[in-house]
Design a protein around this nucleic acid. Structure first.
Length: 571
RNA sequence: GGGCCCGUAGCUCAAUUGGUCAGAGCAGAGCGCUCAUAACGCUUUGGUUGGGGGUUCGAGUCCCUCCGGGCCUACCA
């Protein structure tokens, strides 16, 4: 049995993600996971919340809660939204877990022992009022270049000049506004990625099947300027994985934690361990997914992420793994996405512009969003969400082409033969032609899904739905019934079986709708179709079913206009 | 300022290594059907593939340039 490890980029803890975030990682990863499971593969689908770092601390402070409590709450919020969108994670973990603490410290020690980590002393701004070191971007002041008064310590947003916090005139803490700042010496650990450059370069070169978007970003980091830069992997923060711990090969690192981008990808591994813990399984059960020496040699590992995350997955995380010298599984394929824009601009959390995951589910069930987002996934370039497009796609594809097909078939059958698969009649040329077309399209659909060509897969799936309507139109059972009821029975029997096939094929995209169809058809026969002619005979004459409720309702012009107005932003 | 990606019918997107009049869905037009969520089917109208130049027997597909988006990254005189 093929084994596939799938990870979605882990969403940051400080707030609810918008639809662009969703379609950039979690949703397509879920589609792929569901598809492979349906094909009978052994799948491990992992996601988690990314909880460390200064933004989390600040968000907690703003909410007036201890950061641990804040993160626990937000984790549950995001987990619930994931369930709402039917994201079928095998485990949705937390980067703050004990497992991640252990593994992150483990990797750090290994890297140190092998000479890939070194201590460096540097000077950093410290705020006495806030009682903490401040990251560059949390220092504000007047730009020495253009005079802009709200320049950040890393860059002036007004003139785009790169800055050091010490360049700023009248520097102050962006957190408290305090000007009681001073430079203090502090010691940090650096990951010596530059030592691994050639190895990473060869590794990237071997990935000839990766999208240009992915490899070009990786190459850029490897070869830009003087080449791959070493990265500081520790920060002066209270919330995170402690750098100083029993058994640590360094000293004097109290009060420091690992940088969020060091521990976050390690959470992919730790989360799998969390999965095993949750289910009371042995260590081997999760290690067989990750350790090449413990059973993972036949695992294919696929990552999903937005393009902004590519550097960390092509450079930083692989450097951590390779540098460890231990046989951990490296990623085999990276599926990266461009951005989804919102109605002519970008999604904006601060301006309340665009639709966020919680709002989306308040408006419509998950399937509507899943279908639109996946069938318009920004695979080749940035794409755009507009309410008009959303309305027409959902109404046309889900309500008309698929939903109405189910409706006309089941209701016709009920009216003429009762709620049971009718007996009698045989297939003719029309049926054989339909089977041939569906056979061809299903194989094409599989090919697109195997290649994770999401929009193409969606288009092919839709074409299969359309084939059902074409067949009905040609076979015209309502006309045939008047003179040859047996013949009409054969047509409807095939059509009902086609509904079952639709349910199986569509489940990765629209799991709720697929579930409703299986329920209506009163069947548990959900196996992926091999021979199509055979699959279209799975529901035998005499099999009872019931006419389902309207599968997908339509979005009205009034609703569309109201939503357009409500989420336009500028609160 | 560099590096990379993109700009294809009104809209959203396709077009194997450059090669049979540039395709699909939606929208528009016409016809058909009546089982169905006023749904479905068939036919059909739209593009000098951002502008200009070049290479080639032949370019949306390669090169140069300009315009317009996006991403990454940096201030070398």
């Amino acid at each position: 049995m093929a084994r596939t490890l799938i990870t979605s980029a882990i969403p940051y803890i400080n707030g609810i993600k918008h639809l662009g975030n969703l379609v950039g990682s979690q949703l397509p990863a879920d589609l792929y996971a569901r598809y492979l499971r349906a094909r009978g593969d052994d799948v491990m689908f992992i996601c988690a919340t990314d909880e460390h770092g200064t933004p989390a601390e600040l968000a907690a402070a703003k909410a007036g809660k201890p950061v641990a409590e804040y993160c626990a709450e937000m984790h549950e919020v995001q987990a619930e939204l994931g369930r709402g969108f039917r994201l079928s994670f095998d485990h949705f973990g937390r980067s703050s877990s004990a497992r991640n603490h252990q593994l992150t410290q483990h990797f750090a020690v290994r890297l140190w022992e092998r000479g890939y980590i070194e201590e460096r002393t540097e000077r950093q701004m410290y705020s006495r009022a806030d009682n903490r070191f401040l990251p560059d971007r949390y220092i504000e002041g007047t730009c020495p270049n253009c005079g802009y008064e709200k320049a950040r310590g890393d860059q002036c947003e007004n003139c785009t000049k790169q800055l050091d916090p010490t360049d700023l005139i009248n520097p102050r803490s962006a957190i408290s506004g305090s000007t009681d700042l001073e430079l203090r010496e502090t010691k940090h650990l650096y990951l010596l990625q530059s030592k691994l450059r050639d190895e990473l370069d060869r590794w990237i070169d071997s990935k000839t099947d990766w999208p240009v978007l992915t490899t070009s970003i990786a190459k850029k980091w490897l070869h830009e300027g003087e080449g791959l830069k070493d990265r500081g992997i520790t920060r002066d923060l209270g919330w995170g994985v402690p750098v100083q711990f029993p058994g640590a090969p360094w000293s004097g690192m109290e009060g420091k934690v690992f940088y969020v981008w060091f521990d976050a990808p390690i959470e992919y591994i730790a989360c799998t361990a969390e999965w095993a813990d949750f289910h009371g399984l042995e260590e081997h059960e999760w290690r067989r997914w990750w350790r090449l020496d413990e059973g993972a040699e036949d695992v294919r590992y696929v990552q999903f992420m937005g393009k902004d995350n590519v550097p960390f997955h092509t450079i930083s995380f692989p450097a951590t793994i390779i540098g460890s010298g231990e046989p951990w599984k490296l990623v085999d394929y990276i599926k990266s996405f461009n951005y989804l824009n919102y109605d002519g601009g970008q999604f904006s959390t601060s301006q309340g512009r665009g639709v966020f995951m919680d709002q989306a589910l308040e408006i419509l069930p998950a399937d509507y969003w899943r279908w639109w987002l996946l069938s318009h996934a920004p695979e080749n370039s940035d794409s755009e969400f507009t309410w008009e497009n959303f309305q027409t796609s959902v109404n046309k594809d889900l309500a008309d082409v698929l939903g109405n097909f189910v409706s006309r078939v089941t209701k016709f059958c009920r009216a003429r033969f009762g709620e049971v698969v009718p007996a009698g009649g045989e297939w003719g040329d029309t049926e054989r032609a339909l089977v041939a077309e569906v056979e061809r399209r299903v194989r094409q659909y599989e090919a697109h899904m195997d290649a994770i060509e999401i929009r193409k897969a969606a288009a092919e799936l839709r074409a299969i739905w359309v084939a059902g309507n074409e067949y009905l139109q040609t076979a015209a059972p309502w006309a045939v019934f008047k003179t040859d009821p047996d013949r009409a029975a054969a047509i409807i029997r095939l059509a009902l079986n086609l509904v079952r096939l639709h349910a199986i094929l569509s489940e990765p995209f629209i799991p709720d709708g697929a579930g409703a169809l299986f329920t209506a058809l009163k069947t548990d026969a959900k196996a992926w179709p091999g021979d199509i002619a055979e699959a279209l005979g799975a529901l035998p004459p005499g099999h009872a079913f019931e006419v389902p409720d309207v599968l997908y309702r339509k979005i009205t012009d009034e609703e569309r206009a109201a939503w357009q107005e409500r989420y336009a932003g500028k609160r």
